[in-house]
Design a protein around this nucleic acid. Sequence first.
DNA 1: AACTGTAAGTTTAGTTACTATACTAACTCC
DNA 2: GGAGTTAGTATAGTAACTAAACTTACAGTT
Lengths: 148, 148
Amino acid sequence: MDNNNKHEAPSLTHSFGRLILQLRKLERQPRTFEGIGPLTPSEMHTIDAIGPEGSVLMSELAARLGITKGAVTQLIARLESKTLVVRSMHPTDHRSTLISLTVQGKAAYTMHEELHQAFYNQLQTQMSPEEIAVFAKTIDKFIFALDH
Amino acid sequence: MDNNNKHEAPSLTHSFGRLILQLRKLERQPRTFEGIGPLTPSEMHTIDAIGPEGSVLMSELAARLGITKGAVTQLIARLESKTLVVRSMHPTDHRSTLISLTVQGKAAYTMHEELHQAFYNQLQTQMSPEEIAVFAKTIDKFIFALDH
DNA sequence: AACTGTAAGTTTAGTTACTATACTAACTCC
DNA sequence: GGAGTTAGTATAGTAACTAAACTTACAGTT
């Protein structure tokens, strides 16, 4: 039985299992933003996917988030009611709806970005730039492997 | 403005964002196992957390999964109805319930492990052992940073 | 100009995966 | 033998979806 790589595999298995559980936990924790109120992770991801500049089609949003159009409809309805997002008509195609961030939506976007930045800054105090580079590169291969 | 590390940070941000979306997608996809039927990710995580040997307390399970006891009650009820898990009384403490995998539950555990193994094998064809080692090490630091 | 097929978005009902709260039963300790 | 704690359950509510059926609108044909 030539399973001589038993020493490293369990470590990755274990680390990755813990990462999944940690992310599951993180992904169900709403976060409150100054002057905006609490936003769920899905709402935050949607704001991220729209971006601070320009506007995005509903269907494009569904593709970016990897969810169905129906789910996007519901998310956008909630974000619209919180005045973080506005719908506008497509100039030529009358079926399409363009989504863009309001001033408040952009504020939420920025605050979330700053939160990210703070996280990366903290990470940099514990990891060398080389390690971070390898990590980023590895994630891409990892995603590729997940996709098959 | 001394932001001279702008070259690498966006890459990690982008990769990590994609990873999150990919994992969100993965974590809502049920998977069908031979002779057992479809299992949701939460069910699978629970089976993993119980493990093939011995038995676990409900409260210990809640701690391992990072969810409330109430959530565990519901999950175990579903797994019990699928005969993947059995409850048994604690020998001395009459409040406690011990959970262990049935033969079918162990089969599901093993099949899932094999799936993991196949994934890691595929990963190894695209990454050097050194890269994998750095990746595992980095995940741990990453989890630590997430915890604060 | 009418006809067919496709694409964009919405609606609705159902499911999963939780949480929070209130509860019962059992244990511990002083 | 209470008082406080711990183990587990029950219940109602919410978030985050999916699937399926639907309405409009467009695009290409004939």
